[in-house]
């Protein structure tokens, strides 16, 4: 069975579904009996979830206008 240190290294591989069947079984067998690794797995997933809820930075109005100007120039070229 994997050690805690191995679980630490393999958490993302596990969540990405890239472990083979044997490794996956070993991973799950360890986590089911190890509260420390269950806690760590849950923290890594909470981190991922939390990142997904963050909002993107504000788009600078001057950049927007500069890009729209490029669009207008492109449009003229198209004619």
């Amino acid at each position: 069975m994997f050690s805690c240190r191995q679980i630490y290294d393999l958490i993302t591989e596990y969540d990405e579904g890239s472990l083979d069947a044997g490794e996956r079984r070993q991973f799950e067998s360890h986590v089911v009996i190890c509260p420390a690794c269950r806690g760590f797995l849950s923290q890594m997933r909470a981190t991922r979830e939390h990142l997904g809820h963050g909002s993107a930075p504000e788009f600078p109005p001057e950049l927007e206008e500069s890009i729209v100007s490029a669009f207008q120039a492109w449009k003229k070229q198209q004619r």
Partner: peptide, 20 residues
């Protein structure tokens, strides 16, 4: 982590991680 050569807790966490 405990050292890989630790007599009892080789490569185990030294503390319990709590669920966030």
């Amino acid at each position: 982590f405990f050292d890989a050569n630790h007599s009892r807790w080789a490569s185990c966490w030294t503390t319990i991680n709590t669920r966030w």
